[in-house]
Design a protein around this nucleic acid. Structure first.
Lengths: 173, 173
DNA sequence: TATTGTTATACTCTATAACTATA
DNA sequence: TATAGTTATAGAGTATAACAATA
């Protein structure tokens, strides 16, 4: 989950030199492009905002080297002890096959462990390690004090909760 | 840009049969998992909403077989005649190398054409064809009457413009 | 027969280096 | 030398089929 640009994202470039032509002659070209109805298209603006938020998340949590997806796994493990891989993965919308490599990564960093369930020996219960718990605690602190704090400053507490409410409606529609 | 699930998305599954146990005995397991602080994490909720919006866009424009990214290119071509590949691509946050195959696709469907610039023979001016203009017009109609209409119904006109305003702030921060 | 974790695989999106033809 | 379009390539993220172990 490295920094992205995406099919529908990023800001237009700064205008090129020609736009600074003294006598206003051939300014025609090289001005920033018109977005047309894209600037009113919710999906378009949404995607750009989404990318910025993830970029900022990654930057804020950078000392701990956790992607948003990895962070979400650790949070889920903390709140749902005793669950197996499939339960964790599908709750996050991750397909079981794709969760294998992801867990391998977290486990190799000793942030969590898989243990065979004694009740159902097909299942791997996924548990946070002490190190995982400590990294998660630090990550949550960075997210709260840097990432979310920045978003709060930008949107205001009212704006933030209004936004959360709308996002929730959208994600259920 | 097929329907996705993403690292941080999709709704939790319905509870499994065990949860419907008559005498409330072993309900403990198999209940939906706790999201913990994820439900308050803007990026997490944002991503889920984002995926739903794109899913809906694709579904609404499905008769024309246009992805959000392709649609955004056609809109830009309509509003910015005479521009070259690099200008179109970078405005949308698409890297020049990745724009080549994308344009190939649109051009092979005769929705646009590349023509060598006479002023700078390195440049390819990208132009909408008549067919491209017509497909775009139909796409815009579908987007307005189905996709955006649905979002308006969900959020209300006030909510929609408030949301657009916040998204705009976010995409510039 | 069904499910869990897994492997293999493929397709899309994103990213970088380097080539070519022009300037 | 610098830029536009391109090729090649690599890495994420996402998707499906199928296998071994277990139920």
């Amino acid at each position: 989950m490295a920094a992205t640009r995406s099919a529908v994202s990023r800001a237009p470039r700064a205008r090129s030199k020609a736009a600074e032509t003294p006598q206003g002659a051939a300014v025609a070209d090289s001005a920033p492009l018109q977005l047309g109805e894209l600037s009113e298209l919710l999906g378009y603006v949404f995607k750009r905002a989404q990318l910025r938020i993830f970029e900022d998340f990654i930057r804020c949590v950078e000392p701990l080297q956790l992607t948003p997806a990895q962070f979400s796994v650790l949070v889920l493990l903390e709140h749902n002890p005793g669950r197996n891989q499939t339960e964790i993965a599908t709750t996050l919308g991750i397909l079981r096959p794709n969760f294998v490599a992801m867990l391998d990564g977290l486990e190799s960093r000793e942030l969590c462990v898989r243990v065979r369930s004694t009740q159902d020996r097909r299942s791997h219960i996924v548990m946070l390690t002490d190190k995982g718990r400590s990294v998660l605690a630090r990550a949550k602190r960075l997210v709260a004090t840097k990432h979310e704090a920045r978003l709060n400053a930008l949107l205001g507490e009212d704006g933030r909760s209004a936004l959360l409410g709308m996002l929730d409606k959208l994600s259920k529609f």
